[in-house]
Design a binder for these strands. Sequence first.
DNA 1: CAGTGATATTTGCAAATGCATTTAAATCTG
DNA 2: CAGATTTAAATGCATTTGCAAATATCACTG
Lengths: 162, 162
Amino acid sequence: MMDKLPSDQPPGTVPKLGEIGLTNFAPYLMNRIMGRYNASLRDEMAGLGLTTPKMRALAVLSVIEGPLIRELAVFSVVEQSTLSRALDQLAIEGLIRREADAADSRATRVYITEAGRASFETLWPHMSEAHSRMFRGVSADERRAFVGTLQKMLSNIRKHEI
Amino acid sequence: MMDKLPSDQPPGTVPKLGEIGLTNFAPYLMNRIMGRYNASLRDEMAGLGLTTPKMRALAVLSVIEGPLIRELAVFSVVEQSTLSRALDQLAIEGLIRREADAADSRATRVYITEAGRASFETLWPHMSEAHSRMFRGVSADERRAFVGTLQKMLSNIRKHEI
DNA sequence: CAGTGATATTTGCAAATGCATTTAAATCTG
DNA sequence: CAGATTTAAATGCATTTGCAAATATCACTG
């Protein structure tokens, strides 16, 4: 189970995945974990008529007020064309509202409605619970450090993004 | 940027996402990071005629010898039906080989071929580079701790899984 | 200020996805 | 050990996805 952990690479060499070990390779672990996390929410969402893109948009909108659609796409990690269609549905269901930007008439800002907020708040306890389950047996300090590393990683990968 | 970090919940209360802050919520950060990581590989993969499911299967097979298809589905975080079709393609391209299990004739084991290994080894440097970029400015100790936490999380979420 | 290029969003369409079902074989049960 | 149940993998099919193109507007440049 505990192979050797990835260390700094000897110059000019790229250690193979087999040498690192699947269960020591962070992206692998993260994909595994998020795959499960997202799958576990899918059922709850289905019951509320939500899909992953719709839920993600609502989640972000519950926190960020009136972003542009392209910003929302980045924050919610959904392709813009997919998001566009998800917003169509959310709008029909009265969970969000599109509003033309005052300064730029190409742009659209998105606002969550009260119904949208209510819908997300029905889902949130399940998300929160999945989150707690994920961190079972991880101390507050360790969690803090973990989130701190994630924040560094995010700033590393978003090049010229928001 | 640095809101307060999630702490242990007061009994009987679930803090809202807005209170935690999007950028302190680990699943959000992880989805963001993996979204970028996976997207950055998609281009490289496209050039090699690979899709995400095909690449993931190859990656796992480069490390695990002859898993059952349902095991491979778990390890590679791909729906079984999607994997089945990805394997069809990989087999046509000669990158993997399906072999009936000796003991259970319902089951199929999957093996990577030399060509498959070669194909993955063409992609691997890009994955490795994306990985390094992700961890830029994160010390070896911090990485170790991070991976350690991920391993705990994985064992928390996989209930009765492999 | 007309023309060229960039940007915001939507939409057409082919391909990918995932649920539910099917097929086949193993295992359990009375 | 026949019949019912579970399990492994593949497949049918409707939905979703994402790329590329279209549309509309803005910003820049000579």
